[in-house]
């Protein structure tokens, strides 16, 4: 759904989203990196499980919440992408059960 205006600029690193490798560029935050990779569904609403994705990209709407390296409900649009990040969709409300302490 998105493309880079500069096709040539190299990647700065790779993270994973739901096990899938995602290359990102310098300056990308997590939300931009995921959108650039064609990932459309960031989280499921904790109220009705409907798919949600970034709306404002500036920290206001809290629609871009994902799980980053085991930490849930992180604002993807405010966190710079870093190599090796393990990112998962935020599935509804925070889950405290059956997870490594």
């Amino acid at each position: 759904m998105f493309r880079r205006i500069e096709a040539s600029a190299g990647t700065a690193g790779t993270l994973t989203f739901e096990e899938r490798p995602v290359a990102f560029r310098a300056g990308d935050n997590v939300a931009a990196a995921l959108l650039a990779a064609g990932i459309a569904r960031f989280r499921d609403s904790p109220v009705d499980a409907a798919p949600r994705a970034p709306y404002c990209m500036m920290g206001v709407c809290f629609e871009c919440l994902v799980e980053i390296d085991g930490r849930q409900n992180q604002q993807a649009c405010l966190i710079p992408a870093r190599t090796g990040m393990v990112i998962r969709r935020q599935r509804g409300a925070r889950d405290l059960a059956d997870r490594a302490p």
């Binding site: 998105f2 493309r3 880079r4 205006i5 600029a9 560029r25 300056g27 990308d28 935050n29 959108l35």
Partner: peptide, 9 residues
């Protein structure tokens, strides 16, 4: 997205 990542729909 355009300013910070050079992304365009």
């Amino acid at each position: 997205l355009l300013k910070s990542s050079g992304l365009i729909p």
